[in-house]
Amino acid sequence: MPKTNRDKELDKMYRDLLETRDSMRSANKSDGNRLLTFFIGLLMLGGGLFMIFQNISVSSSWGYGGHFFSIGGFHLSNGLIMLPIIVGIGMLFLMDKKIFGWIVLSIGIVIVLLSVMLTTHLSWRTTSAYVFIIMFGMTAAGGALVLKELFRKD
């Protein structure tokens, strides 16, 4: 029995439907692979950064010698940098307009945080070349995988 135009159109639609289904399946597989690649990259990046931060020693010289900094012959001691905090707290309790007390207290907190940060020293612990390559290799590869999946153009 010869095929009519209607049968040919149905056959063509059926083939198109099968092609669409197959392309959807392959797209779903690649989406799963992309998500897996992203999370593997994230784990590698986190692991590498963790290893790097484990090999950094942090020390502070704050409080040693009793001086934060000196200008000429004038030395500002560590105890003296606490003065704005004490004055700010007093102003909060004594003044009606509390905004000035909050400003002085905030300045005091910033001065203390800066003094601690400025006297902090970071040093690298001795490690083998193998561990060094693993740490930075994992960080670089993980970061590359994450960026690749984040900025993929599909």
Score class of each variant (00 low, 15 high):
77 S>R: 01
42 L>S: 07
113 L>S: 12
39 F>W: 13
51 M>L: 13
51 M>R: 06
108 G>W: 06
32 G>F: 00
105 L>F: 08
33 N>R: 04
31 D>E: 14
89 I>K: 01
119 T>E: 04
57 S>E: 13
118 L>P: 02
123 S>R: 03
57 S>W: 03
130 Y>N: 12
132 F>G: 04
98 K>C: 06
29 K>E: 11
67 H>F: 12
83 L>D: 08
118 L>D: 08
92 L>T: 06
94 L>C: 06
49 L>I: 09
38 F>Y: 02
59 S>D: 08
86 I>A: 13
78 N>K: 02
105 L>D: 00
33 N>A: 11
65 G>M: 12
73 G>I: 04
86 I>W: 06
95 M>A: 15
131 V>H: 08
110 V>C: 11
51 M>W: 10
70 S>W: 05
27 A>H: 09
101 G>M: 01
62 W>S: 01
95 M>T: 15
106 S>M: 08
45 L>R: 01
84 P>G: 07
67 H>V: 15
26 S>F: 09
75 H>T: 01
36 L>M: 12
124 W>F: 13
38 F>Q: 07
69 F>T: 03
47 G>T: 07
120 T>R: 12
96 D>A: 15
99 I>Y: 10
65 G>R: 06
95 M>F: 14
59 S>A: 13
115 S>M: 09
39 F>Y: 12
50 F>C: 05
77 S>G: 11
58 V>T: 10
60 S>A: 07
59 S>F: 05
59 S>G: 12
50 F>M: 10
35 L>D: 10
43 L>P: 02
110 V>T: 14
40 I>N: 03
100 F>V: 13
41 G>T: 00
76 L>N: 05
74 F>Y: 15
59 S>T: 04
109 I>W: 10
